[in-house]
Computed example of a mutant assay.
Amino acid sequence: MTVKAGVIGATGYAGAELVRILAGHPQAELAAISSVSFEGKPLSSVYPAYYGLCDMLCGTEAEVLQKSDVVFAALPHGLSQEIAKECHDAGKVFIDLGADFRLKRLNEYEDWYKVKAVYPELHEEAVYGLPELFREEIRGKKLIANPGCYTTAVPLALVPALKAGLIEKDGIIADCKSGVTGAGRKSTQDTHYPELNEGMHAYKVGGHRHTPEIEQTLRRICGEEVTIVFTPHLLPVNRGILATCYAHLKPGTTLEQLQKVYEDFYQDEYFVRVLPDGMKADIHNVRYSNFCEIELHTDPRTNMLIAVSAIDNMVKGAAGQAVQNMNLALGLEETAGLKMFPPAF
């Protein structure tokens, strides 16, 4: 079985990463790519590292839809709904790396993103593509909302303890750091090198759009409302998410108990590595890979869980997870095209 895959928005960071991963997929053929800014130009003229490896010309959205069985959209929010409708009507698999289908409560989507939900029935049909938590819902589906980076790293760090009833649902804090690729390819003052280098700052404090998405995942796991404090920070590095999550422990919960719960929960998950005591979750050790590392600590003085997760925001937090979802949707081996090791140094 060879899957014809197309990428809309191929010259953005997530789109280019999709091309890189799909090129190494044993059962996928890159059928078409599109870019509004670079239409008619080869992808390798935008990313010289791809010269001689992917010189495909950037075409139009229509060409991608025509030539592809699976369509990936790596676009800003608000731009995927019409594409999703076209794919739905044509019976194609559509995987959205943007936020248009992630939130099930349409009022939350419209409030946080200031965009109208044009096709409520598609929002209802869409499944949330975090495989380690919702794998069975993803299998065989044709409209998949691919989670972002923070919304992958934080739930993976917290869900085992939450599901086991070892932490309180109130007072959860997610303190997260991101590499600058998470801000997208278009430069701003905050992502301009002289502004970013040798600095670090919080952004969108108390109002980041990923907040309701993280809460939605935690709510689905425990069946009750969960409210978190989520604060992202920008690191002067290209790649990576480091999520340090704090939660109040239930009385009597020990680190040994937590370690076993996490190891049991993720024992069959190829892409999640629960680290033993003494090893550190580090963005350096997950670069260019689809892995998530998790380390666990308790603070007996404050009776808090401190769970730290690390992912590559462009792979497990974007393109790699999207390919993982494609594999599940089409009945392929889930790890196909994704077994690349992180570089050692």
Rank of each mutant, 00 (worst) to 15 (best):
I167Y: 12
I241E: 12
L218K: 09
D277W: 13
P212L: 01
S309Q: 01
M200I: 11
I172Y: 00
S44A: 13
A126I: 08
K141F: 11
G179R: 01
L338N: 02
L234S: 08
E224R: 11
C245T: 03
G171R: 10
Y47T: 08
I167H: 02
P131N: 01
A157W: 04
A157K: 01
E168G: 14
V118E: 15
G206K: 00
G148Q: 00
G52H: 03
I283M: 05
K250S: 08
S309D: 06
E82V: 11
P160K: 07
P42A: 05
A117L: 00
K85W: 12
I138R: 03
Y193E: 14
G91C: 07
T151A: 09
P160I: 05
D96W: 00
L156D: 10
Y109C: 12
Y288N: 14
K204P: 07
G12N: 03
L143T: 02
T253G: 11
L330Q: 02
K316G: 05
S44E: 00
A16W: 12
V127Q: 02
L106D: 14
Q216T: 04
C245A: 05
D55N: 06
K116N: 15
V127T: 04
A318T: 00
D69A: 08
I283G: 05
Y246S: 14
L75D: 01
H192R: 14
H77F: 15
V36H: 14
C149F: 10
I83F: 09
Q267V: 12
E224H: 13
S80W: 08
A49I: 12
Y262S: 04
G15W: 07
T152G: 04
T244V: 15
G206D: 05
C176S: 06
V3W: 09
K41S: 10
K316L: 11
E213Q: 12
E256D: 15
G206F: 10
H210Y: 14
S35N: 06
E263N: 07
H192T: 13
E334N: 07
N327K: 01
R105M: 05
T231H: 11
Q267P: 13
V115A: 12
R139L: 15
D264Q: 05
C176G: 04
V3P: 04
E213K: 08
I172C: 05
Y266D: 06
K4V: 15
Y128V: 09
G91Y: 01
K163H: 09
E61P: 10
A336L: 00
A49M: 15
I172D: 07
G9Y: 12
S178P: 08
A307R: 03
A329C: 01
E333T: 10
Y150P: 06
G252P: 10
A126K: 02
P236V: 00
G98I: 04
T181S: 13
T60Q: 09
Y266M: 04
A84W: 06
P48E: 01
L30N: 09
T211K: 13
G171L: 02
K104A: 11
D190H: 15
T151S: 10
G337L: 00
R220H: 13
V154L: 04
T151N: 11
D55I: 05
V274C: 07
G12W: 02
V272H: 03
P48Q: 04
P300T: 10
H123N: 14
H123Y: 12
E121Q: 09
G337H: 11
C54N: 14
P155R: 01
F271N: 07
T11L: 01
N146K: 02
E137C: 10
P236W: 04
I173D: 12
L57C: 07
